[in-house]
Design a protein around this nucleic acid. Sequence first.
DNA 1: TTGTAAGCGTTATCAC
DNA 2: GTGATAACGCTTACAA
Lengths: 340, 340
Amino acid sequence: MERLNIDKVAKLAHVSRSVVSRGLNNHPNVSEEARTRVMAIVNEYNYKPNYVARSLATQSTFQVGVLTSRIGEESLGNGYWTLLYLGIFEECIRQGYYVRLSFYSDSMKKELHDLILNEDHLDGVICLNEDVTAFTVNKFSDRRIPVVMVGHNPNYPEISSVDVDNYLGASKAIKYLTGLGHTKIGGIFGNQNVEEAEDRKMGYREALISAQIPYNEKYISIGDYSQHTGFHAMCHFLDDSPELTAVFCASDTLAMGAILALHERGIQVPAQFSVVGFDGLPISKYMIPPLTTIEQPVYGKGAKAAELLVKSIKGEVSKPLRVNLEPELVVRKSCAPPAQ
Amino acid sequence: MERLNIDKVAKLAHVSRSVVSRGLNNHPNVSEEARTRVMAIVNEYNYKPNYVARSLATQSTFQVGVLTSRIGEESLGNGYWTLLYLGIFEECIRQGYYVRLSFYSDSMKKELHDLILNEDHLDGVICLNEDVTAFTVNKFSDRRIPVVMVGHNPNYPEISSVDVDNYLGASKAIKYLTGLGHTKIGGIFGNQNVEEAEDRKMGYREALISAQIPYNEKYISIGDYSQHTGFHAMCHFLDDSPELTAVFCASDTLAMGAILALHERGIQVPAQFSVVGFDGLPISKYMIPPLTTIEQPVYGKGAKAAELLVKSIKGEVSKPLRVNLEPELVVRKSCAPPAQ
DNA sequence: TTGTAAGCGTTATCAC
DNA sequence: GTGATAACGCTTACAA
């Protein structure tokens, strides 16, 4: 079955190509009779308009780009990105948009700038992290191509963004721990240049204070979100602050590393030490012990970002939106009251 | 800086659009002088040809599709897919191709068929798993759009494919275990309808036999690759075959589940029971205990598949290729000689 | 309501 | 070696 084009369909339906086009695009000015005739042919021959030609004519491609930086394999492989992308992808498809996922790395800077950024066939872009936001905003937003960020960024107040309520999530974690009776609670956080990490830290701090527990700089550690960092931060705590009985990790991967450190020192979780994570990654359920964590709606974040982007593309968003999704505490087996 | 087109460049360089086009596409028939003049303008104004228009004219889009099925969140989130995609993505970008990643699910069947499959703007497709191969091959291969599979599939001898040598990987695992002195070794495998799983099982079996250890159907379990399955398979072994001292899991996620089951029964790994995985996922390093596993070059599989696809698109592949990559044993801390 | 014709920005053919 | 000109397959004024 060779591919037919709009003219062939027009001929078969005994109308002009404009009628076919209007019929397909639900334009008003087409008689009921003509429409049925066209649709009959369209269905019979399973005609699908050529998107490329349509793109050229309409100057819009129905493609959105998803940009993220190519961070270490461990971070990429933790399951978070897949779920986030899945949320974006499925929402986009529902709305009739294709999606292209690109990883930005220094080693491929040139190719990426040529291919990803200088192109004119993206109707919108979603930035998955801080690292890619700057140049994305420059390149796209200036060209009036809508951009949406996953994760708020105060430097770009004109860009819509979606995130989980990080402050609330951290508070929930600390409240749970203090409720269990812990008073010496460490905190392992991600990079503070990002609003997300800052919020998680604030949530930790305020929750401590409102539980009448003094906030102690010595009990916090700041780095990235990797298992590696969690491992070493935990080792430091064990050496320098042996009075700690629990730790809040600002990511599940951080928690994985921390638990491994505890394990290697022969410290039982949760009997001797409690750990709570953040993210609720699929694997957290299978950690040893299964991790008590703050679950964020990762898929939902992606879907919401996509929804916002499509609305922006369609011009339905007048001013930048800032949406916050709610995190939930998921209690599993990594916490217990402090040992006597 | 408003976007310019080929005609404006032509005017600025005092040549015709054809010369500009030829210059940009490295065609022979263009004088050195004209070429330099064109390139000067191109660089000065940072002109990039419009891909959409080019696609329409050349009937090729420089986009490839990556298709996979939307399996459970746990499987998606294990890190394997991200790495595989990364390999594909980076190789494609290097070759000048964009890539679109699509997840196929029943719930979005209609949208996906309309958008993903019936389209005419994909120069090639990579199938990431069995589930999507059948209709992909029908839709694309019949239209002379090249398809490459990750994972061999005997049903499609005409399609090129890339995989790790699964047979070899499994043998390496078993050899290591028998070398440690184990003779009662369980095996937890994925779905046998797939060549990959079959090969891993054969590798297990043959390695056992060549170590003079009888192969026992009772010691194997077949399901999917999830942690959940690993957990339950291990529980069964513990109940029905308490003589087992080690288990080979055909994926790291299976191993995660198995170790959790062991942990819940109070059985120490590796002191009382040894476990080896397969895949070498980034997280396997941080499991408790860190997992001894057969590491496969996941990124490399993706990159190789992309390479094959691009070659096929360019017509440089005459007959279907079947490439096998080599897996390596990575020794960590989940194995020890059997307890006396 | 319908059809004609002019784009959209390229590449490719074919005279010159 | 160069430059008109005709595709590519669609949308969209504008006329009818």
